[in-house]
């Protein structure tokens, strides 16, 4: 992952982003919102787990290489997203994180995308997973999932 995104001197005050790919796009999900990351077992798929492509509206999900289940929660509600195995966790430099342009922001926020970070590999989209789950109605109560 691009080193210029990391500021190790002041990590505590910078958002930690879990970086993963979805197709050609690079996402950085707020790591503090993620309860757990577990390997995805296709023989015993967790209930209500949704491929990230589908959750965010990228269309059909391409085959995962190393799928993992990302679990987030809000009180008794849980959302499970199947993502490609994360590449890294970075501390995003807030001086480099950019608000989305006004033409894009209202649409992107409905998918939980709240900022962008230009880097060597392209534009990383900062993701608020709880907002994504709320906007896309992906929450399930704990009892449903267990």
């Amino acid at each position: 992952m691009a080193i210029e995104m990391v500021d190790s001197l002041n990590e505590g005050s910078y958002p930690r982003l879990l970086v993963f790919c979805a197709g050609s796009l690079l996402f950085g999900a707020d790591a503090d919102q993620i309860d757990s990351l577990d390997p995805f077992d296709p023989d015993d798929p967790p209930r209500h787990a949704v491929p990230f492509h589908q959750a965010i509206g990228l269309g059909c999900s391409p085959p995962f290489r190393f799928p993992e289940v990302c679990t987030i929660s809000r009180g008794k509600d849980v959302c499970r997203l199947i993502i490609e195995a994360p590449e890294d966790i970075i501390c995003a430099d807030t001086r480099l994180l950019q608000p989305l342009p006004p033409l894009v922001a209202p649409f992107a926020l409905r998918r939980g995308i709240w900022a962008a970070l230009p880097g060597k590999r392209g534009i990383l989209l900062a993701l608020d997973p709880r907002r994504l789950a709320t906007e896309r109605n992906l929450w399930h109560t704990q009892g449903d999932i267990a």
């Binding site: 796009l25 649409f107 995308i113």
Partner: peptide, 14 residues
């Protein structure tokens, strides 16, 4: 152009 999920076709991305 980096596409953004959820945008209409008239906004191809960033």
């Amino acid at each position: 152009i980096s596409p953004i999920p959820g945008t209409p076709p008239c906004i191809p991305g960033l």
